[in-house]
């Protein structure tokens, strides 16, 4: 096999991306009372600690429930929005599509600040507020990727279904949805990752004592840089990677996205 210049570049870039992750994983095995890399000795104690740490596990559970709920909502809303926006004569199409994509273009801290002001007034600094905030964050990813799928769809296929006797709802269910599924799935997966890893918005919206995992880790790192934080992070990384692998197997997700 010939090693080209581009493959060396690719290797360097992968190394830069993956190295910090490996450091976290390595640090979780250290025997020292503080995070150290390279790890000194080898122990699984920190995993035991992390699994028995109520704040960490509570944070993980909260993260999962928020991500799943927010993804469910934004996948449905985002798909509906994209289908409307893809219509050639969508009323206010340009305005609405920049509205839906706005959170992509505004710094997350700004969005978070705006949400904090509004949600404090509405008494939404709780689980529901977090879900609502994450829907705002993740919606653009769904709208985007579903719009891309719809753009590749031959509109005469939907017309064909209609003239064969399918009502608009059945055209959607039997024809449109199966054909845009790769876009919907890709949007949902992206949304999950965005929500699960989000810190800036969650920091503002969560109340002390009930914060999602990234916020808990963030706080711990500031006050108590114990290797159990690295262990919890490793658990989250492994969970994320295995989810991606399963989805890749099931939906050929990357292929469908970059086709």
């Amino acid at each position: 096999m010939k090693i080209s210049v581009t493959s060396i570049f690719a290797f360097i870039i992968y190394a830069i991306i993956i190295a910090p992750v490996l450091m976290v994983v390595g640090a979780s095995f250290t025997e020292t009372r503080f995070i150290a890399f390279p790890p000194q000795g080898f122990t699984l104690d920190w995993y035991w600690r992390a699994l028995n740490d109520r704040a960490l596990m509570g944070g993980l559970w909260l993260s999962v429930t928020i991500a799943l709920t927010a993804v469910g909502i934004s996948t449905v809303l985002g798909t509906m929005a994209a289908i409307y926006l893809a219509r050639p004569k969508a009323f206010g199409g340009a305005v609405l599509s920049s509205f839906f994509l706005a959170p992509l273009n505004v710094p997350a801290v700004m969005t978070a600040f705006a949400l904090l002001l509004a949600f404090t007034r509405w008494g939404l600094i709780n689980w529901y507020g977090l879900v609502a905030a994450h829907v705002v964050l993740t919606l653009p990813y769904v709208v985007r990727s579903v719009l891309v799928s719809l753009a590749g769809l031959d509109s005469s296929i939907q017309r064909a279904a209609g003239i064969l006797g399918a009502s608009p709802l059945r055209v959607f269910w039997h024809v449109t949805l199966p054909l845009i599924r790769p876009g919907v799935v890709a949007g949902a997966i992206f949304s999950f990752l965005i929500s699960f890893n989000n810190v800036p918005v969650s920091v503002f919206i969560s109340s002390p004592g009930s914060a999602p995992l990234p916020v808990v880790l963030f706080n711990r790192m500031q006050w108590l840089a114990e290797p159990s934080v690295a262990a919890a992070a490793t658990i989250a990384i492994v969970a994320t990677i295995s989810t991606m692998l399963i989805l890749e197997r099931r939906f050929s997700f990357y292929q469908s996205m970059f086709r």
């Binding site: 031959d154 005469s156 296929i157 017309r159 064909a160 003239i163 054909l179």
Partner: peptide, 13 residues
């Protein structure tokens, strides 16, 4: 009605 389209417009799935 029945309709045949310019690009066949078959359901690819």
């Amino acid at each position: 009605l029945g309709m045949v389209f310019q690009g066949h417009a078959l359901f690819p799935h």
